[in-house]
């Protein structure tokens, strides 16, 4: 474990908790893409199947349980509890256009052709594009609540920190995983446009609004 991975995990945790609190406190999921949240729940489910069979450390197990619990709680709140506030008209990104190609790619490009490994690879590829419906929704609505932009910033930052973690691990441990690195680069690049808007607008106290 190195400081970049630890801060990356904490940034990820902050993002997930921030979103959960936003929906819970405002009792509304306006501006939140349910499709992205369903894909994140799918990412954690397919990635943490070894939760009970492969114990790494208390930290690792606790974080996996928290990620799984929070992501399912978020999906539950969006599609059940606060369904009335779900903005389905703007959450129109075709998620199947992501899940199917990602599923196919996981079969073709992986480290080992075993169910667990293919599911892990699927979760890595899916996570890299899972935020697209959310970013797409923001372009449709032309704006985002400030709390939502903080959520997105923390979420984007987490994988950027993981990229530094992989550089660190390559340099000091000679460890690298090309699938995770390439997907991590794609994932972080997708946030660049948002990062620019976040830093130039939200951090200057302005609301994030896109030229509609």
């Amino acid at each position: 474990m190195n400081v970049f991975r630890l801060t990356g995990d904490l940034s990820h945790l902050v993002a997930i908790i921030l979103l959960l609190l936003k929906i819970w406190k405002t009792r509304s999921c306006a501006g939140i893409s349910g499709k992205s949240q369903v894909m994140f729940a799918l990412v954690f489910t397919t990635r943490y199947l070894d939760l009970f069979t492969n114990f790494i450390s208390p930290y690792n197990s606790v974080m996996k349980v928290i990620y799984l619990g929070c992501s399912y709680a978020t999906v539950y709140m969006i599609y059940m509890k606060f369904k009335a506030s779900y903005d389905g008209n703007h959450d129109t990104f075709r998620a199947e256009f992501l899940i199917i190609p990602v599923g196919g790619l996981a079969f073709l490009v992986n480290h080992e052709f075993t169910p667990l490994e293919i599911l892990w690879t699927f979760s890595i590829y899916l996570e890299s594009v899972a935020i697209l419906p959310q970013l797409f929704m923001i372009t449709k609505t032309g704006e985002a609540e400030t709390i939502t932009t903080h959520y997105l910033f923390a979420l984007g930052l987490y994988r950027a920190l993981y990229l530094i973690n992989w550089i660190w691990r390559y340099y000091f441990e000679g460890f690298f995983d090309l699938i995770a690195i390439v997907a991590g680069c794609v994932q972080t690049i997708l946030y660049c446009d948002f990062f620019y808007l976040y830093i130039t607008k939200v951090l200057h106290g302005k609301k994030l609004s896109l030229p509609a």
């Binding site: 991975r5 070894d50 492969n54 790494i56 690792n60 490994e117 973690n165 441990e173 460890f175």
Partner: peptide
Amino acid sequence: EQDKERKDEL
């Protein structure tokens, strides 16, 4: 070995 190592990441 490599896989074992990697699986320690979230």
